[in-house]
Design a protein around this nucleic acid. Structure first.
Lengths: 113, 113
DNA sequence: GTAACCACTTACCTTGAAGTAACTGATTAC
DNA sequence: GTAATCAGTTACTTCAAGGTAAGTGGTTAC
């Protein structure tokens, strides 16, 4: 019987691919940060992120809701206002986002020298 | 004089955008993981990541080298072999990658229930 | 000498994420 | 009544990341 080869077997790409599927792309993390920082309404989030269009924001919010990272609630009073908040599951991303922030700072220092 | 508004000013999107610029996309993180796990030669890396083509690998390795995350060395003996290794700067990504791995595991549990 | 491996490159094509712009329907301010 | 704000939708376009496939130039095994 041939020896099992596990030199070329990457044990952990799947979880990382899962993460990339859910929070990858240009805008999702930025939208989550915006909500974390206290922007809960559609226009608030939109204004807080430069160059983000309403259509893209709308699409991304739906994706984030589908993946249970944020929840959308609509007040049934007048005026009707929607509020986006992080779910408990969404809050588990905070460590990862902090890590991304820290590395970004480090990298910029490294590149500029 | 009007009060400075900083409610909608996201203080930290730039570092996160920098990080996304450098390690965003479908393959870069997976390639870095492969190198971390001991795959140092072109074909080794290629074989270790399902569905990764030579052209994409070649492109991505160049990007990673440009951003000083990996270094490419060619042995001048026979046969000529190239070796890709993480730079010290590249190694600083390990915490972030671990965080992505951990969150991916957590998310899969959450979604499957 | 020919088949296979290593480390790629080149040329071309496809696709989906993202961007643009206009519009909707409700409410509020003046 | 008209202008503005909120929270989006719809229709269309663009573009770059990624995918496909074949080729290159060298080496090694038999």
């Amino acid at each position: 019987m041939k020896k099992l080869e596990h030199k070329n077997c990457m044990l952990s790409i799947l979880p990382v691919q899962d993460t990339l599927d859910v929070i990858g792309g240009k805008w999702k993390i930025l939208i989550l940060i915006s909500i974390m920082e206290g922007n809960h309404h559609f226009r608030e989030i939109e204004r807080s992120i430069p160059n983000l269009s309403t259509k893209v924001l709308s699409d991304q919010l739906k994706d984030l809701e589908t993946n249970q990272l944020i929840s959308r609630s609509v007040s049934n009073g007048f005026p009707v206002r929607t509020a986006y908040t992080l779910t408990e599951h969404g809050k588990t991303l905070q460590k990862l986002i902090l890590e991304m922030h820290n590395w970004g700072v480090l990298h910029r220092k490294k590149i500029i020298q």
